[in-house]
């Protein structure tokens, strides 16, 4: 498996706060990489550096490199909008737009210039199928998306992200606001999706990392403490702090 993203000596400050300290990591493609760690450890912050969503916060300063397909995404020549199209994101709280299910999915493709109704219909159906929600919504595509349950909304958000045909899907604690059944559906979906997409998921739930991820990175106080195959990291952690965290001594 080849590497699709690499961070080199990445540092990030929120104003005076040094939130990420010299992070180095490589993320293999078509796999699931999980970021774990206690609250405030920088895992979500790091996730957002991967598609430059941190750019939106005025006081952020970043040094180092994040390479996607060999290109530093913080280079001036990079088109941020194109980058975000290729590296999609699913947020912690399901955030469908206050419009119809159809328009939610079609939003991205329309933004990127697709106008043909036939083409849009096709993308909407395919995206909803890929997100395993087509059967539940195919009869109410014109209904407002805010009328769906939380779990459905989150799968809709995944479908919406897939509609612009990204290569990577970043998921920021996508199940933390969901019930156990919805959570397991999202997890199954993630495993299904890794056949075609690279998935990076931030999770608070260590069992979730064990269940679905191939590799796990453990963050603590802005540092990447340990990174490796999930099975190995959870069974034989090399760092004492990792062991303390996964055995529940803090966190």
């Amino acid at each position: 498996m080849s590497d699709i993203m690499t961070a080199k000596n990445l540092n990030l400050w929120y104003g005076e706060t040094h939130a990420l300290k010299n992070v180095n990591i490589t993320i293999p493609e078509k796999s699931i990489t999980a970021f774990i760690g206690p609250s405030g450890c920088g895992k979500s912050t790091f996730l957002k550096t991967l598609n430059r969503m941190n750019d939106l916060i005025p006081s952020v300063k970043i040094t180092g490199e994040v390479c996607y397909n060999g290109q530093n995404i913080y280079d001036n020549s990079v088109d941020v909008n194109e980058l975000r199209r290729e590296i999609g994101m699913v947020f912690q709280k399901p955030n469908p737009f206050p419009m119809s299910i159809y328009d939610n999915i079609a939003y991205g493709p329309r933004t990127h210039g697709i106008k043909s109704k036939v083409k849009l219909d096709e993308i909407v159906e395919q995206s909803l199928r890929d997100a395993a929600i087509w059967d539940e919504v195919k009869d109410r595509l014109k209904k407002n998306a805010l009328g769906m349950s939380g779990g459905q909304q989150q799968r809709l958000c995944i479908a919406r992200a897939l509609a612009v045909k990204p290569k990577i899907l970043l998921m920021d604690e996508p199940t933390s606001a969901l019930d156990p059944i919805s959570t397991s559906r999202i997890e199954e979906l993630a495993i299904e999706l890794k056949k075609c997409y690279t998935i990076v998921i931030v999770t608070h739930n260590m069992q979730q990392a064990v269940r679905i991820s191939d590799n796990t990175a453990f963050f603590l106080l802005g540092e990447l403490i340990e990174y490796g195959e999930t099975e190995k990291l959870f069974s034989q952690p090399t760092d004492k702090r990792t062991e303390d965290y996964i055995t529940g001594r803090f966190g």
Binding site: L83, R84, N95, V164
Partner: peptide, 14 residues
Amino acid sequence: PKEYEDASLALGAT
């Protein structure tokens, strides 16, 4: 809600 705007930006909209 900022979440709406974030979702749109994350889809590559300007």
